[in-house]
Amino acid sequence: MASGHGHGAGFAPDGAPIERISHPKLSLYFGTYFALLGLLVVTVVLYFIDLSKMWHWVGWNIVIALIVATVKALLVVLNFMNVKGGTRLIWLWAALGFIWVLLMGIIFLDYQFRPDSTAWEWQSLTDRK
């Protein structure tokens, strides 16, 4: 019977596999959970604060909210889903989906660059009729 091969990354000289999935300790799970709860509090508090007053741009709220959501998602992916302890192949596929979905953002450019017409009434900041 053939000895264990590192099918993910080829042989090591002694025939042992190159990469192996390792599993975290319990404390990591609980730590992640409390971090997530904390970030949830941040998210909700952020909703009630209007950052445009402090930092002079209306976009800050959504940007920070998305950053916070991304950090939460990263925590879940790396720790709960054990990508941190996985092989390179697992890491590749974990990253691929989230990056690829951004590709659809090209569709945005269509709407940005259309010549302005009355068909699309973009709502301006001072839209009060």
Binding site: L109, D110, F113, A119
Partner: peptide, 13 residues
């Protein structure tokens, strides 16, 4: 987008 040249898709895109 090359399937949509004749739509209202932005010509720059």
């Amino acid at each position: 987008g090359h399937h949509m040249f004749a739509t209202s898709q932005s010509m720059y895109l």
